[in-house]
Computed example of a mutant assay.
Amino acid sequence: MSYTIKTLNKIAKTGLEQLGDNYTIDDSAANPDGILLRSASMHEMEFPESLLSIARAGAGVNNIPIDRCAEKGIVVFNTPGANANAVKELAITSMLISSRKIVEGINWANGLTQDVAKEVEKGKAQFVGPELDGKVLGVIGLGAIGVLIANAATNLGMEVLGYDPYISVDAAWGLSRAVRKANDLKTIFEHADFITLHMPYNAQTKGTLNAETFAQMKKGVRIINLSRGELVNDDDILAAIEDGTVGAYVTDFPNEKMINRPGVIAIPHLGASTPESEDNCAEMAARQTKAYLESGNIKNSVNFPNCEMPVSGAQRITVAHKNIPNMVGQISTALAEGKVNIKDMINKSRGDYAYTILDLETVSNEESIAKIRQIEGVIRVRVI
């Protein structure tokens, strides 16, 4: 079987090569099976019935209408961890440039016109800043990126406090024993010399750092935000810089308020801007797309549950449906009435939605599939 993939942004060649010979890449396809993209906005797009999946080569998915996709049975993937090392390196860089006044010093030195060596020796004292060794770093969010940063910081001699009430088992296994657990944000605010944010942006996390939380922090704390600009209240952090509560703010999401402000280091969204990161994200997005289109397996979806099972039997059926009682029973009954035996099955749920994979001992009949499609709450049925 062949598939058509539409690209909305330039996707690294190494990623597209993961798809193989049975895929046609077409950036103008009207009826694609899947879409690969990076930052293009999809909120105004109309989705054809052919569209089965959308994969973003990156972690954030604010540019994709997640709920609308779920309602149509379109599985949306992201690539958590694929750009983790790139962001880790920028976070370490951010701590250094916020502490040592390196950016200010470079800009000052580039403005010198004569007696440069003499002026450098006379003026360098104004750019003195503390070392990282022995300082306390608070890491808020211990996903793939947060864990790498926490571990790297311990190797730099920093004392690290980590906070994440939803830390995964995999992340916990990868975390250095030297990282201390903070039971709440207040612990980090009261003890950290540096705070770095690595959490998703949503209604609950919007403005996590604000006037109230700044009031709990150590004087001169440095804030690193490489996650989402909206996690920090702009007006409140500018006020905190003004009164000396915040020693420096490094943001990878500059806006009009953050440009040319003392104490603010604005980076032009460079978190994942490395060739290695772009390749890793593209490859991961392509592999997840390929696995879903060819086998129905889901990994790293943001709107449906992770659901994977080795392929066995004569035929595979996948069902995207609402997470309501007796769905699996109704699906099984529809197959039994058509005298089709189930060889293997898996069902997973996530919030309002669920996903079922069924491997059948014999090929199903059209009548059984039609009955499954007619079940209330069923969104999409695929026969693979």
Rank of each mutant, 00 (worst) to 15 (best):
Q315C: 11
K299L: 09
D243Q: 06
G247T: 07
R261V: 15
P275F: 12
A291M: 14
M327C: 09
E230D: 14
A320R: 10
E308S: 15
T333A: 11
G313W: 04
I241V: 15
M284F: 03
C281R: 04
I317Q: 09
P305K: 05
A266T: 11
I298F: 00
D236S: 10
A282T: 07
V311H: 08
S273N: 14
M327R: 02
T251I: 10
A286F: 04
H269D: 15
E276Q: 13
M309E: 11
T318K: 02
C307R: 04
A286N: 04
P310N: 10
D279Y: 08
T251P: 15
D279T: 14
N303L: 03
D279N: 10
A286H: 03
H269N: 15
T289R: 02
F304K: 09
E256Q: 14
I324V: 14
I241R: 02
M327G: 03
E242C: 01
V232Y: 00
Q315W: 11
N260R: 13
Q315I: 04
A285R: 03
I298S: 02
P254N: 10
G247R: 00
S295I: 12
A239R: 06
T274C: 10
N306A: 14
D279H: 11
F304I: 09
T318Y: 01
N260P: 00
H321N: 15
E242Y: 03
E242G: 02
T274S: 13
T333V: 09
L335R: 03
M327T: 11
D235P: 02
C307S: 13
H321Y: 01
I265K: 01
M258R: 07
D243C: 07
M284W: 00
I265E: 01
D235G: 13
I298C: 03
S301P: 12
P275N: 15
G296H: 06
A282M: 06
S295P: 00
Q330S: 12
L270K: 07
N306R: 05
F304G: 06
N297T: 08
A286L: 03
A291G: 07
D279P: 01
N326H: 12
I331A: 07
A248M: 13
L231A: 12
N326S: 14
G329Y: 07
I265H: 09
N323I: 08
N300K: 01
A286I: 00
E242N: 09
V328Y: 01
V319L: 01
F253Q: 09
N260Q: 13
R316H: 03
T289W: 04
N297V: 01
V264A: 06
D234F: 02
G247D: 04
I298H: 00
D252N: 08
